[in-house]
Nucleic acid binder design. Structure first.
Length: 493
RNA sequence: GCCCCCAUCGUCUAGAGGACCAGGACGCGGCCCUUUCAAGGCCUAAACCGGGGUUCGAAUCCCCGUGGGGGCACCA
């Protein structure tokens, strides 16, 4: 085992937690647990304009639902707090000052208007938009005087103009860029707030982060981030940039509109939606863990503890991965089948209640084994087993007529079956099935023909959980009542 | 436009120079089991982006091309 890793998930609460963020959080969590280290949650909320109401709450709830509890962060105080960047403004300002003192940053007075104009000119000339370094020429005395005079200003990083910067990414090896291709990025805005580049690097250092595991959209600014660490004289953390998720077609990232379309098909990229759609934390975790990774040559079903055991950054792949919702269903079904029936019942209950069915827990517990290998998501049970909770079921007349049979023959079959069933106080009697098979034979029917009619009569469905198990749970009285109703429907044809 | 990253079945991936007529999983198709639907079991089809090198030997290393992705904000 490697040294204990101190890692962090550092989202910005500008929306609801999606599977990309969840997977980043998961890998951080796994490395921390795997190495006996700590998993921190830091909220990057320096840009108050972009915050979404309820975003933070959703984030904490989604992470907890997935089972990714953080060791330090909001609602889990630690020695490195506060863990909300909005409460760390002065820390960043002090570090910006230090960078200026070290000659690695400078104060810039250029107005947004000049910057915009500069950018336009550069684009017209087909040059990359970059700050021209005008304020680099200011002497410290000049700069200080203008600051004191109240002139608006930002702090920029003084990126070397010559040479190249090399940074090592765990998944990709050395990445080298020419410094001339880099910009003098802004570190501190004119309102005094730090930008991500400064805030995140300062916090990662102060919070003693050993591995920065984040989305690969940060790769382009990796050289800047490494230079910031180096400018302070700090040791760099290990950098690990995760592959991005592409839409199912593999062409491009998921857009907002596509996410809405997905929801209609029972899929989503948002954790809160997945939960509502009847996915389990186990299924979602398993699904996203394997998008961009492989932990075993012969096995791909894992629980969270199993993932902790096997996790290693070496198992991650740098290539982008297309999201595959069919696979989410598969993993969800697998994990649903792994649940103890009582647990399945407990988890399905809210979905029955949401559907307006008074789901008695004891009854649900008896039903669970019957539908366990049939449900893909927790809400599937409602459609599959709703008939257990309803007083009456309505069967379509056409469904009550056996395959290849007349309504007359079907009526007789229902009637004869009712008489046999009436003889059994307990429909769980194992002899019952043999008797009904005998009946089928006597009537010259295949078992499937008779059972099909009974299924439709008793459950109101053509597809249902096993007939005998279902009847045993429904009970003789109700079964006979439903059969009687079916007989009346058939006679009326 | 510029910079960076990536490239094995439809999809997620195994593969770190000979163990590969390329393995697993999802999905697809077929068979078995079966009262429906599932689940389960068995089987089939399906890939090393292209071109140059290096090497006795390349899916694996290098270069070029192509394709895909990401980034170029006083957002994160």
């Amino acid at each position: 085992m490697s040294q204990p890793a101190r890692v962090r998930f550092a989202p910005s609460p500008t929306g609801f937690l999606h599977i990309g963020g969840a997977r980043t959080a998961l890998y951080n969590f796994l490395l921390a647990r795997q190495t006996g280290g700590q998993f921190l949650l830091r909220i990057e909320d320096t840009d108050q304009k972009r915050l979404v109401p309820g975003g933070l709450e959703d984030l904490l709830a989604s992470l907890r639902w997935l089972g990714l509890q953080w060791d330090e962060g909001p609602e889990a105080d630690g020695v490195c707090g506060p863990y909300l960047q909005s409460q760390r403004k002065e820390i960043y300002q002090a570090h910006a000052d230090e960078l200026i003192a070290r000659g690695s940053a400078y104060i810039c007075f250029c107005t947004p208007a000049r910057l915009a104009e500069l950018r336009t000119r550069q684009q017209q000339r087909k040059e990359s938009p970059r700050y021209d370094g005008l304020c680099r020429r200011l002497t410290p005395a000049e700069a200080e005087a203008r600051v004191r005079a109240g002139e608006p200003h930002v702090v920029r990083f003084k990126t070397p103009r010559e040479g190249a910067t090399t940074v090592v990414d765990v998944l990709r090896g050395e990445i080298t860029v020419h410094n001339k291709d880099l910009d003098d990025s802004i570190l501190l805005k004119s309102d005094g707030w730090a930008l991500y580049h400064l805030a995140a690097m300062v916090d990662d250092h102060l919070m003693m982060i050993t591995h920065v595991i984040r989305s690969s959209e940060w790769l382009p600014s990796l050289p800047l981030h490494a230079m910031i660490h180096r400018a302070f004289g700090w040791d760099e953390p290990k950098w690990c940039h995760l592959s991005v998720f592409l839409k199912p077609s593999g062409k491009g990232k998921m857009s907002k509109r596509e996410s809405a379309e997905l929801m209609k098909e029972g899929h989503s990229v948002f954790v809160r939606d997945l939960r509502e759609l009847g996915y389990t934390p186990e299924g979602v975790i398993n699904w996203i863990a394997l998008m961009g990774a492989s932990f075993d040559e012969k096995q791909d079903v894992f629980s969270l503890p199993e993932l902790v055991e096997r996790f290693s950054l070496d198992h991650l792949t740098p290539a982008a991965a297309a999201v595959n919702f069919t696979k989410a269903d598969h993993f969800n079904g697998v994990h649903l089948r792994r649940l103890a029936p009582e647990e399945l019942a407990r988890r399905m209950r809210p979905f029955f209640e949401k559907a307006g069915l008074a789901a008695d827990e004891a009854l649900l517990r008896r039903i669970a084994p019957l539908i366990q290998e049939r449900v893909v998501t927790l809400d599937d049970g409602v459609e599959m087993a709703g008939f257990f909770f309803r007083e009456h079921v309505v069967s379509a007349a056409s469904d009550l007529v056996g395959k290849g049979m007349t309504s007359q023959a079907s009526t007789e079959a229902v009637h004869a079956a009712s008489e046999i069933l009436a003889d059994h106080a307990d429909l769980a009697d194992p002899a019952l099935e043999a008797k009904l098979r005998d009946l089928a034979e006597r009537l010259g029917l295949k078992p499937g023909q008779l059972f099909g009619i009974l299924r439709a009569a008793v459950t109101g469905q053509t597809v249902s959980p096993p007939l005998f198990g279902s009847m045993a749970i429904i009970g003789r009285e109700k079964v006979l009542a439903r059969l009687g109703a079916a007989e009346r429907t058939l006679r009326a044809m």
